[in-house]
Design a protein around this nucleic acid. Sequence first.
DNA 1: CTTCTTGCAAATAATTTGCACTCCA
DNA 2: TGGAGTGCAAATTATTTGCAAGAAG
Lengths: 133, 133
Amino acid sequence: MLKNTKQRCAIMQVLKQSGDPVSAEDIFAALKDEYPNLALSTIYRNLERFAADGLVKRDVWRDGIVRYSLAQEHHGHYLICTGCSAKIKIEDCPLTGIEQGLAHDTGYEIEGHTLTIYGKCPKCLRRGKTQNQ
Amino acid sequence: MLKNTKQRCAIMQVLKQSGDPVSAEDIFAALKDEYPNLALSTIYRNLERFAADGLVKRDVWRDGIVRYSLAQEHHGHYLICTGCSAKIKIEDCPLTGIEQGLAHDTGYEIEGHTLTIYGKCPKCLRRGKTQNQ
DNA sequence: CTTCTTGCAAATAATTTGCACTCCA
DNA sequence: TGGAGTGCAAATTATTTGCAAGAAG
């Protein structure tokens, strides 16, 4: 099971083409020209299934919106500007290694983690902190 | 400004008493006996203000719900079981130190970070992975 | 054909907002 | 007293779900 449908392929395409995590709405927007009657619910359902199957990684951003990215390319985390939302990918994950110790100490089987760092980028620093979130 | 109201105190009390991050609904539930007509919107508004003033730290959990905790006690992150939601506080933050290097490399001013580790606790491991999410 | 998928529309659930009223400073 | 703060109800917004129709194996 997990049939090969046009919609499913298209969603995967978007995930592959965009290096960064994308929301359901992002995908919807990206595909609405080519698939005018693709339903948002289809996107949600597929993303959830992909995530359950371990194909994609599901993350909740600070803004409360869920973003998905291909499991393989995920890792690196992000440094996100709280002023302008500029993102920098952090290639080098500081947690590799730590998780093993943690598993040993707690008896948990570690499945993954969420790490995002927030700050102000140089441009926003210069402008002072006029804006909030 | 930032007047001293009963509601505001009560919300702060809950934050202080609960070591763990709490959601608006948690606070609502905790206070509904003592303050039967406290409005959920009041809680949301105050938590947002507290967060804006740096009094509390705002975090989005994997389940999409926003939790708040006193800024001081925050740090420690959490190891959360994806089966039963059991939480273990991780006292020792692996990012201290790394942030400085990052600030130097990127020119960002680091404001904070979100780190949560997910896994299965020993009990849930034993039961096999019957449940999802 | 039979089961997995989809599209649509309606349902949830968390959070936000408008507004008149209330209460601290 | 005057503006900050509150309660209530209605509005938003992201996501989920039921169901009949459609497509893949």
